[in-house]
Design a protein around this nucleic acid. Structure first.
Lengths: 156, 156
DNA sequence: ATAATATAGTTGACAAGTCAACTATCGTAT
DNA sequence: ATACGATAGTTGACTTGTCAACTATATTAT
């Protein structure tokens, strides 16, 4: 646990919360970087990939509003605007305003966006899986259950 | 695991790596936000707090170079420059160039920086601990061990 | 001794995120 | 029916982070 020394933390003292905290940060950072690096070969970023996945998997026929996408990704409305501006400029999504409610904009994946998503998807999953497969199946299950319970408790 | 639906993932199918992955992301995000919100009351951010902690705990008499700080935080050199620019403007650190090597700048925490760090520290630890204490002691230990092993395996 | 190479830090241009203030539209309460 | 408040999205100003190209100094090899 040499990496902990950077934070002035002594390991193995009965208090494990600091180690757990920084361990979490380290793992998250490394995995995020690996995913980002992979996506870069498709001119995608984790943020763009997430948006495209949400719209394609959840949007269906009717598409999604910007709010709906933002909520599912825990991203603010202003960030959604800019993210979608970019995706629209790159012609990966389409924005239209033809609902009853004139405030809401309906977002759909374009043909091109859909294609790029399909191209990037297998490698994206592979990259994610290869990071996760450093853990055993049992550990993955443990982590999955524990993280979701933890998340729910944190939100209270 | 409703949150998973956002990503089009079906839970409980024997494959747990996706759940584990998104669980990790959710937990990380929530904890990071809590810490950031706390630090904001001291006009600090996680990045600034980390830099101050590193310099104070590791710098000692001789201080640290920008590279050394950046390496310990896994942050690029250019980001260090800008982060330290800001900290210097706010008079929380001091930069001097009086080593043999004229390229390197020595960073030290200022009196003011040290004071603010001391003020913010207890609540910072409390915030972190309260997030971690949603897990049992045993779980914290498990997570700590597992994360560090995982991190090492990921780096290979 | 000098030329090639490595290292420390800076700068510019960008991505992704925040908040606060704004416009436009929609619902509701009186 | 109008006025007030909620909601959808946008914009500006900011932070934290990246990479690539740059300057200045050190080190190494011939």
């Amino acid at each position: 646990m040499d990496d902990l020394q950077a934070f002035g933390i002594e390991a193995g003292k009965g208090r494990h919360y600091e180690e757990a905290f920084y361990g979490l940060v380290l793992v998250y950072t490394v995995i995020f970087d690996k995913v980002a690096k992979y996506l870069d070969t498709f001119d995608l970023t984790p943020a763009k990939m997430n948006v495209l996945m949400i719209i394609k998997h959840q949007g269906g026929e009717s598409g999604l509003s910007q709010r709906e996408i933002g909520n599912r990704l825990m991203v603010t409305a202003s960030n959604m605007t800019r993210l979608l501006d970019k995706l629209e400029r790159e012609k990966l999504i389409e924005r239209s305003s033809r609902t009853g409610d004139k405030r809401v904009k309906v977002i759909r994946v374009s043909k091109r966006g859909s294609q790029i998503l399909d191209d990037a998807w297998p490698g994206y999953m592979k990259t994610m899986k290869s990071s996760m497969d450093k853990l055993s199946q049992a550990e993955q299950k443990t982590i999955a259950e524990l993280m979701f319970r933890w998340f729910r408790d944190l939100k209270e």
